[in-house]
Amino acid sequence: MMKSQKYMNPYLAGFLLGLVLLTTIYITGRGLGASGAVKSIVLSTVVKVAPVHSENTQFIKTYNEEHPHGPLQDWLVFEVIGVIIGAFLSGVISNRVGIKLERGPNVTNGTRIVTAIIGGALFGLGSQLGRGCTSGAALSGMAVMSFGGIITMFAIFGSGYAFAYFFRKLWLK
């Protein structure tokens, strides 16, 4: 198997990412995002699977009323489908595609999967409370100088540093 290529220079990648974001804002008037797509898919699924329950759950009901077309008309869902395609293309070009599980040196596969799910759940919950994740709130917020977006960014990274010590066994030797 060919060796996978080195990653792009981070500043060049950042510059390109900035251009993608700028172009998106110029064309659509809004920034990029990610967690909103998960929200759209999850909540529409709940509505399909458990319609009665959805009617009785205020948050889902409101969301469903505000987004009557479902995930197939949702900007972020389309954008995230794009992310999947783009990342896959990049992986193909740089020889990084393949089933793999990445974990810290002292962690079992099972632990890694469980912690990924827990981390994902916390991120999912936090992104709903904070109205956006690292992409939608922090990155896009910075581009338009949103106060809320920038303090969310500080909260994310500040808390990451604050908790890093306690979870060092997950990642370090």
């Binding site: 990924a116 981390g119 994902g120 916390l122 999912g124 936090g126 409370l129 992409s135 969310t152 908790f163």
Partner: peptide, 18 residues
């Protein structure tokens, strides 16, 4: 608070949604 929960999720899960 949402940001702080996300930070915790980041260090435990090793990713952010995107």
């Amino acid at each position: 608070i949402g940001g702080a929960i996300m930070g915790l999720g980041f260090i435990i899960g090793g990713f952010c949604p995107g």
